[in-house]
């Protein structure tokens, strides 16, 4: 176990040590103490380390993650797992806005609530939220899955492309070009796999699916009011 205490080391030192060459061959377990909401913790990790942030994290924690498995034992700020490529991030508390923004792959699990714009412009990442998500979640989401075990606030899936959204609770007003779609057996299968991966025990049959009506893909002057 490697322990880095952010009362003694800088964030730059933390990330440099996590990036050290040779780590890829010898992935390790890392514990980050006293994070105090500092920004950009454990970003851009190419090695499959297991990193535990022992407290609240700031903005962009685990951003650009490639292979690491990161756990935040507290709340986290804006853009957790921003541009995540693969690997996994778990937030044990609430996440601020833009969780998983532009993420290409991998898995983000949020045990609490996620704030607004969860999964904004996601491009393949899977996001599973045990609680609820704020307004404009799934905004311009292109690929991947957003699973919400609680409720979703207004403007869900605004201008969504081919990402799929699953919501178990209530939803507010849907965003532009976002519609509810039928749950087919393959969607139940996908959802079952995602809930299982995230360690959630909810019944997949209790979810509803949302996706794109595909009316805003190309400029059509008749849709001008909806852009």
């Amino acid at each position: 176990m490697n322990i880095i205490d952010l009362d003694k080391s800088s964030v730059r030192e933390l990330n440099a040590r996590l990036h050290e060459k040779g780590n890829g061959e010898a992935p390790g377990e890392w514990q980050v103490l006293h994070p105090h909401g500092k920004h950009s913790l454990a970003v851009g990790l190419e090695a499959p380390h297991k990193v535990s942030i022992e407290g609240h994290a700031g903005y962009y924690c685990g951003g650009m993650n490639m292979a690491a498995e990161i756990t935040i034992k507290g709340q986290c700020g804006k853009g957790v797992g921003e541009n995540i490529m693969s690997g996994a991030i778990r937030v044990e508390g609430n996440a601020a806005d833009a969780a998983g923004a532009t993420g290409l792959g991998g898995l983000i699990v949020i045990d609490g609530d996620a704030s607004s714009r969860c999964g904004i412009s996601m491009k393949g990442v899977d996001i599973v939220v045990k609680g609820s998500v704020g307004h404009m979640s799934g905004f311009m989401a292109q690929a991947g899955h957003l699973v919400v075990c609680g409720d979703a606030d207004d403007d869900l899936g605004d201008s969504i492309y081919e990402a799929q959204i699953f919501v178990r609770g209530e939803n507010g007003a849907l965003g532009s070009d976002c519609v509810e779609k039928e749950m087919m057996p393959e969607h139940i299968e996908t959802l079952t796999r995602l809930l299982d991966k995230a360690g959630m025990t909810c019944d997949p049959a209790a979810f509803r699916r949302f996706g794109s009506a595909r009316k805003l893909y190309n400029l059509d002057v008749d849709n001008a009011g909806n852009y």
Binding site: H36, K38, G77, S115, S116, G134
Partner: peptide, 22 residues
């Protein structure tokens, strides 16, 4: 505006923290 400003408050580790809705 951000959590960093609250980090030194007594009991912050167990405080309820959330973003206000629009």
């Amino acid at each position: 505006s951000e959590y960093r400003a609250l980090a030194a408050l007594p009991g912050i580790e167990s405080a309820r923290l959330w973003e206000p809705k629009p």
